[in-house]
């Protein structure tokens, strides 16, 4: 009975069927060409000479050491930026102070700096001709063309990821719950652990996995500071480059396929985190402000309709 009315109302806010199908069609073709094909090409090229050649390429000691170095780099860089991200989000989202907008802009700065420039600044600091170069040489510490430089460049490039996710989320959530906890006698740490953290956990996971994906995949910045010493300062992306330039296509794509797999896992975790977050937000949104008991009823109605 109500369906014709609904249909006519919708006609004003949506397009004719052929327009819809055309737009969806163009979008799918575009995304197929630009996203699906490149992804598929990585795996196809890696498997071109069969699974054995693929496996051989991954078993190679240089590839193996590149994998280890990449994991170590991410294991150092991500926790560092996690602690920073939480601290920065706490002070930016929960308080008002002078220069807050400047601070927020500066946190974003590494996003807009070219990765090559990011690598270069560390060469200028710690390289042989850099500020600390002579001192480091005297004490026989290697930063540039060694693992510390790679880690530093990676930290720089992935610097804003977690803070960027958390700041808007924590701003949107406001301070009421934390204030209530403090008033009820919780310590600052308890408030963070039991009130703030559960509220931001999906945003946090989202930030961490994006940060991790970039940390493992960073190429430009790391390429400037690494020195490309095989088996020592080669991360996976750099190893891919070397193999590719040596025309070892299958081996290059084999290592690249691991990185592509990492990207796929990242996307899956990201989507799950997003859906969970959305569902929680919806559940909270559906709670009537005072009568909490009515919530399950409201939810089931929503699900039924």
């Amino acid at each position: 009975m109500s369906s014709p009315i609904i249909r006519r109302a919708e006609a004003g806010t949506t397009e004719a069927a052929w327009v819809r199908y055309t737009l969806v069609g163009i979008t799918l073709v575009f995304l197929f060409l630009f996203l699906v094909l490149p992804l598929a090409a990585v795996f196809a090229e890696a498997m071109r000479k069969g699974f054995d050649a693929y496996w051989e390429a991954l078993k190679e000691p240089d590839a193996w050491s590149a994998i280890c170095l990449t994991l170590i780099t991410a294991l150092i860089a991500v926790p560092l930026n996690l602690v920073f991200g939480v601290a920065a989000a706490w002070c930016i989202a929960k308080y008002e102070f002078k220069g807050k907008s400047v601070l927020t802009t500066l946190v974003d700065l590494p996003f807009s700096v070219s990765p090559v420039v990011a690598g270069l600044v560390y060469v200028l600091m710690f390289g042989a001709q850099g500020w600390f170069g002579p001192w480091l040489q005297e004490h026989d510490v290697k930063v540039i063309f060694a693992v510390p430089g790679i880690v530093l460049a990676t930290v720089f490039v992935t610097f804003p990821f977690i803070a960027r996710e958390l700041i808007p989320l924590m701003q949107a959530q406001g301070n009421e719950e934390e204030q209530a906890a403090i008033v009820l006698g919780a310590t600052g740490w308890q408030t963070f652990w039991y009130v703030t953290l559960p509220n931001i956990k999906w945003g946090l996971i989202y930030g961490v996995i994006l940060c991790n994906a970039r940390a493992m995949g960073e190429f430009g910045a790391v390429s400037v500071v690494s020195g490309h010493i095989r088996g020592q300062t080669n991360t996976m992306p750099l190893h891919v480059e070397i193999l590719y330039n040596e025309y070892q296509s299958v081996a290059a794509f084999a290592v690249a396929s691991l990185l592509a797999l990492l990207a796929l896992v990242t996307l899956v975790i990201k989507s799950v985190a997003e859906w969970r977050h959305e569902r929680e937000m919806k559940a909270i949104g559906n709670l009537p402000p005072e009568n909490v008991k009515a919530a399950p009823l409201d939810l089931s109605l929503k699900a039924a309709s």
Binding site: L39, A213, F219, P237, A256, L259, A263, L267
Partner: peptide, 9 residues
């Protein structure tokens, strides 16, 4: 995907 896929890949 372009956010997650390493640029070299």
């Amino acid at each position: 995907l372009p956010f997650a896929l390493p640029t070299a890949v």
